[in-house]
């Protein structure tokens, strides 16, 4: 059970990373001008020094930095990320309401980009001068250079405003009642454009890498051996070569989790998708610091869990991936 052991070590390390994120979060909150007392007094329309001092004492803001930091981390361990005075709700509740929407968007886009990217990469590696191969090259350039929010708006103009195939904004149509399947279909219809917008960037990355590694694998000795012993071209590609070309693509996909979330922030803003990105955007405008930092923490958590799962997947696919690192 070497895999489990390695996984346990990685998990322990992930916890340290999370605590580091919390320390960074708290230090930024501390360094930024203005504190909770200022926020409260503003929402009350101003307060005198005496009241400010009382609020600071109530919230423990007069304690030394290290004590406050300890309290903050202790709070987070009990799922307490502070209180949002703008939304009048605990930050954790607020985030948990929005997290599913973001996860749905991010995971669908990642999984589709990975699957389609690998298929496109494999097909175009077998025909390096075919149409699809040229499309992969084009997509790689376009995916890097086009601002994701711009692609989103272009799709919105084309498919929601000009041809009204897809809804303009949001995640579901609340004005219509319906059962579970109706709702699922409704959400799927709302998801099409955001997922295409977000997924296309990563599709570009994965298909290009899949093509490159597949072409390299197809030129290697063991593939020649497989061909020589009389396997059909499809068997060679899908049984032998594919497995060996997957690891680099999955490694890349694992490294992209933080980029996917960054992209999701912009995509959510374009399509008014009710996820963490929209929440981040709204709370930044409202200067709601606890919520902003809570979102940063949760998104780091999503990235870390994503990395752990990638690591596990790599070890399961390719036993040569070993060691503690």
């Amino acid at each position: 059970m070497q895999i489990l052991q390695a996984f346990a070590i990685r998990s322990g390390y992930a916890v340290i990373l999370l605590i580091a994120v919390l320390v960074l979060n708290f230090s930024m909150m501390h360094l930024a001008p203005g504190d909770v007392a200022d926020t409260i007094s503003q929402s009350m329309g101003g307060a005198d020094q005496e009241l400010l001092d009382k609020i600071r004492a109530d919230y423990g803001l007069d304690q030394p930095f290290i004590v406050q930091l300890g309290r903050y981390i202790g709070g987070v361990l009990q799922f307490d990320l502070g209180f949002s005075f703008f939304y009048n709700q605990p930050v954790t509740d607020l985030i948990l309401q929005r997290l599913p929407a973001t996860l749905l968007l991010v995971i669908t886009a990642q999984v589709l980009a990975l699957l389609i990217g690998v298929v496109m990469g494999v097909i175009s590696a077998r025909r390096p001068n075919g149409m699809l191969s040229h499309f992969v090259t084009f997509l790689a350039l376009f995916g890097y250079a086009a601002p994701v929010f711009w692609t989103g708006i272009l799709l919105l103009i084309a498919f929601s405003l000009k041809i009204q195939w897809f809804p303009v904004a949001g995640m579901m149509d609340v004005s219509v009642e319906g059962g579970f399947w109706f709702r699922a279909g409704d959400i799927a219809r709302h998801m099409v454009l955001p997922v295409i917008t977000l997924g296309s960037i990563f599709l570009a990355l994965y298909s290009r890498l899949a093509r490159a590694t597949m072409m390299e694998t197809l030129g290697s000795d063991f593939v020649r051996t497989a061909k020589a012993k009389g396997l059909s071209p499809n068997q060679v590609v899908y049984k032998h070569a594919l497995k060996n070309s997957l690891s680099p693509v999955i490694t890349l996909a694992g490294l992209q989790f933080s980029a996917v979330i960054s992209g999701a922030v912009l995509v959510e803003a374009v399509f008014s998708w009710p996820g963490l990105g929209t929440l981040a955007f709204q709370s930044i405008i409202a200067r709601d610091t606890p919520t902003i930092l809570g979102i940063l923490f949760f998104s780091a958590l999503v990235v870390i869990v994503g990395n752990l799962l990638t690591d596990l997947a790599l070890r399961l696919i390719d036993p040569r991936v070993g060691g503690k690192g």
């Binding site: 960074l24 981040a280 902003i292 940063l296 998104s299 870390i304």
Partner: peptide, 20 residues
């Protein structure tokens, strides 16, 4: 370096700009 890779870049810089 790994620590900085874990923080979603756009969100992190949004936070910096928003706070400072």
């Amino acid at each position: 370096t790994e620590f900085f890779q874990v923080l979603p870049t756009l969100l992190f810089s949004m936070v910096i700009v928003a706070l400072f």
